[in-house]
Amino acid sequence: METLLVLTVLFLAATNGANDNFKGVAVVYGSRRAGYWTSLGWASITTLAGSLSSVFLARALLKAFTGAGLVPAEVAAQLPFALAVAGGAGITVALAAWRGQPISTTHALVGAMSGVGLMAVGPAVKFGTLGYSFLLPLLATPVIAVLPAYLLAPWLRRLTARAEREPECECTVSAVQVSADGLMLRTGMPVAIAGTVAECESVGARRVWRPDARGVVDGLLYLSGGAVSFARGLNDTPKIAALLLPIAALDDSASALAVGLAMLVGGLLGAARVARTMSDRITRLDAGGALAAGLTTSLLVGTASFSGLPVSTTHVSVGALAGSGISNGAGVDRPVMTAIVLSWVITVPVGAMFGALLYWWLG
C-alpha cells in the first residue's frame, strides 16, 4: 500500500501540473508575445525551480497539509487517510483539467481532507480551523486580485503603447550628393535615422545603441509569468508532498523533486485545455493588460507562499485577468466566468465525495 500511496501522490501532482502549470504564463501566451510551447516550457522550468525551493522556503505549508489541524494527529498519520485524500483530490483535479476548467488544487485537497475526516472521525473534524486557515484566504484572494490589476492596467497600457511607437534602433548615415549624370560629388554631414533594425541595415548605416522598449515589455511579461510559476511551485509542492509524510518513504528534498517532476510531466501532457480558457476565453488580452495581471498575480501568490498562506494561484490569476479586462472596457466573458466560478463552488464537495468514497473502499 505504500507504493500505491506514492503513485497516487504522483498522480495528484501530475493532474496539478495539467491544471495549473500554464496559469502563470497565460498572460504571455494570451498577449501573443510567445507561442504555446515556448510559454509552457518557460512555465515548466520556473515551476520546477519553485518546487525545489519549497524545501527551504515553504515548510509552513508542508506542516499545514498533513491534515493534523483538521483531524486528530494519529488519524492524519495513517496511510489510508493520506491515500484517500491524494486520490480524491487527484480525481477532482483531473476531471477539471479534462473539462478545461481552472480549479484550485488547494480546494480539492481541502475538500478531500474534509470528506475523509468525516468518514474517519465524524463530528470530531475541526471545521473552525478549516474555515479560518484554509477557506478564508482562498475565497478572499480572487476579489483582492481584481483591484490592483484594474488600477495598474491603464497605466501599463499607456506604457506599452509608447513602447510600441519607439523605434527599434537609431543609426547614422552619410548624406551623399549625386550629379545629374550619376557621379558622386561629395559626402554631406551624417544624417540620423530612426526606424526598425531592417531599415537601418538596408542603407548600410552604423547602428547607435538604444534601449529596446518592446524588448523590455516582453521581458517583464516573461519575468512576471516566471515569478507566478515559481511562486505556484513553491506554494503547491509542499501541499502535495505532505501526503507522503505518513510513510516517510522519501525525505523532504526527494519528495519535492518527485512532486515537481510529476507536475512538469503533467503540464507538458495535459495543459492545453486550461491554457485556452485562461489565455483566450476569460477576456481579450493586450500587452499592457497582460502585464498588469501578471504583476498582480506574482506579487500576491509570491507573498502568500513566503507567508505560508494556502492561496490558490487559479483564484488570484483569474481575478487579476478579470480586473485587467474590466479596466479596458473589454470586460469578461460572462458564461465562461460563470462556469469557472461554478467549478470553484463544487470543487470542495466533489473532492469530499471522492475522498470519502476512497476511504470507505479502503476499509
Rank of each mutant, 00 (worst) to 15 (best):
G289L: 08
L40W: 04
T338F: 15
V259G: 00
L70P: 00
D218P: 00
L291C: 08
V55F: 13
L221D: 05
R165T: 04
G363N: 06
L223Y: 01
G67T: 04
N21R: 11
L183T: 14
I282E: 01
G50L: 10
L62H: 06
A213N: 06
F81I: 03
A76D: 01
L183R: 13
A77Q: 09
P137G: 14
E168A: 04
L52M: 07
R32L: 09
M119A: 13
L358E: 05
L52P: 00
N16W: 09
L7M: 10
A292P: 15
V265D: 05
T105R: 06
A198P: 14
Q78Y: 07
L151K: 03
S307G: 11
D333A: 13
T47C: 03
G267M: 14
V348A: 05
N235F: 12
L61I: 00
A58F: 13
G329S: 12
G17L: 12
V348I: 06
S279W: 09
I45Y: 12
L48T: 04
V350I: 12
V71M: 05
G128K: 10
L4E: 13
T187P: 14
Y29W: 14
L118A: 12
G363A: 06
G219C: 06
V265G: 02
V27Q: 06
I144D: 03
L130A: 11
S39L: 05
G351A: 08
S324R: 12
K126G: 11
R59S: 15
G182D: 02
P123C: 07
P211T: 14
A180T: 14
V274A: 09
K63D: 14
T47L: 12
G351Y: 02
R157Q: 14
V143G: 09
R59F: 04
R207M: 05
L147V: 13
G308R: 00
L220I: 06
R59T: 06
L295N: 03
A86D: 03
E201S: 11
Y150L: 12
W42S: 01
G266W: 11
T106M: 08
P102D: 14
L61R: 02
F81C: 01
L342A: 15
V176P: 15
A76L: 01
L83K: 02
V176M: 07
D280I: 13
C200R: 02
A149C: 10
A213Q: 08
W361H: 11
S104W: 05
Y359C: 04
C169L: 12
L362Y: 05
L109S: 07
S51G: 04
A271Q: 09
V265N: 05
F22P: 01
A77N: 04
P142M: 04
G233C: 10
T314W: 11
A82S: 03
A77K: 09
